[in-house]
């Protein structure tokens, strides 16, 4: 079932349409409906009339194949990290990661836990961090606006960083995931 081919290094050859592409990408962010940790509960209000994320063109997609953004919503256990890697690598390029809460930045209140990771950026490339424990929906929307700004400026390039430094990320992932049984790349 697996394709074991390592992805090619990204080549920057889309100069003609780049501005238009970035504008479209920024205004049509589709999120993988996947929650880790306690922050997932803060994402539900974004659908509601009070916060209404659809006005920014943000929508939930039930499958990683069709989405652009993966939200790591809070503490990430080692067991979940394995699933996050699989989901992240299945998303088609360009893809972005929004990390919520102190736990993704420095471990937060779980900084000395035996089974959660402390710095998310060592394992998958984060584009925008939103701090807080937990960040309220307003803060999440603020994080989205920052992500949209970065995409428009062409600075949200975590997906390129991941492909370019795949050995570095794989090394860190293998160090922490003991029962490593993932293929070279999860297509």
């Amino acid at each position: 079932m697996y394709c074991n081919k390592i992805p090619d290094k990204p080549v920057d050859n889309e100069k003609i349409w780049k501005k238009l592409d970035d504008l479209a990408r920024a205004n049509s962010l589709w999120i993988t409906a996947y929650g880790t940790g306690c922050g997932a509960i803060e994402l539900r209000p974004l659908h509601t009339s009070r916060f209404d994320m659809e006005r920014f063109g943000i929508a939930m997609r039930p499958t990683p194949r069709q989405s652009d953004v993966l939200i790591i919503s809070g503490y990430l256990s080692v067991k979940t990290l394995k699933r996050v890697i699989r989901v992240y690598e299945q998303i088609q390029d360009p893809k972005y990661i929004l990390a919520l809460g102190s736990c993704t930045i420095d471990g937060g209140m779980y900084f000395d836990s035996y089974n959660t990771i402390n710095i998310l950026d060592r394992y998958i490339p984060v584009d925008v961090y939103v701090n807080g424990c937990m960040p309220r929906p307003e803060a999440v929307i603020d994080g989205f606006i920052l992500l949209m700004k970065k995409i428009k400026e062409g600075k949200a390039v975590g997906w390129k960083r991941y492909k370019e430094n795949l050995e570095y990320y794989r090394k860190n992932q293998r160090e922490i995931i003991r029962n490593w049984d993932l293929p070279d790349y999860n297509w």
Binding site: S28, R65, D68, Q92
Partner: peptide, 10 residues
């Protein structure tokens, strides 16, 4: 437009 310009590698 976004979907049309996204990568399809699978």
């Amino acid at each position: 437009w976004k979907l049309f310009r996204k990568e399809s590698s699978i």
